[in-house]
Simulated assay, not measured.
Amino acid sequence: MQETASDITGREFLAFTLGAEEYGIDILKVQEIRGYETVTRIANAPAFIKGVINLRGIIIPVVDMRIKFNLGEPVYDQFTVVIILNIGGRVVGMVVDSVSDVTTLMPEQLKPAPDMGNAFSHEYMIGLGTIDERMLILVDIDRLMASEEMGLSDVEA
């Protein structure tokens, strides 16, 4: 049986925290990581849309993932970061509690996503990544940011 390149190389994920949980997103979707800065609030936007920031002349929406996933009141401190994502040519900011590292997961470390009921829609999960005693909830960030409930479908980069 021949091994393929993906069997040998695995996939890289950016690990970040929201509350007590650790999540991961495909590193290829990440454009940059910035410290949290005050955003300009947009009237009538959903609570999880913190507002917009000017990123080198491009106005981008900023989503607070702690609010989006209903994980309690966000606290903005020196560890809070905005992950700038480039998804299908659209630039979006994502506020998270902190970023820990970039980790490579081999195929045998990826487990299917369990059905979590209404707490977190498993349609936005790729699965779970296991690294020793550590577990990453792997988010399908393309699907999440493109979902109708995010309301970002008409935002252009």
Rank of each mutant, 00 (worst) to 15 (best):
P114L: 00
G57H: 13
Y76G: 00
F48Y: 03
E21D: 08
G72N: 11
V92F: 05
D26N: 01
D115L: 00
N70A: 08
I25M: 06
F120V: 05
F120K: 11
P74L: 00
V81P: 13
I49A: 00
K50M: 03
A113G: 13
T103I: 07
M116A: 09
L71A: 14
V96P: 04
Y23Q: 11
A43D: 03
V96N: 08
F48W: 14
P107G: 03
P74T: 01
I87Q: 11
Q109V: 04
D115M: 01
R66E: 09
G88Q: 02
V81Y: 06
I87W: 15
I84E: 04
K29H: 10
N86T: 09
F69H: 03
N44Y: 04
G117Q: 12
I53N: 06
V102N: 01
D26E: 11
E21L: 02
V82C: 05
E73Q: 13
L110F: 10
V62Q: 00
E37P: 15
N118M: 04
A45F: 06
R34N: 14
K29S: 08
V81I: 12
L110D: 07
F120Q: 10
G72K: 03
A113H: 08
E73T: 13
I42C: 12
A113S: 10
P46D: 13
E37T: 15
D97R: 14
V75F: 03
S100K: 02
V102R: 02
V30D: 11
V75A: 04
S121N: 10
T104N: 12
P46R: 00
V81S: 05
S100F: 02
I27M: 13
Y23G: 08
R41I: 06
I60N: 12
F79P: 01
I33A: 12
G89D: 05
R41Y: 10
N86W: 12
Q109W: 05
P46T: 01
A113P: 12
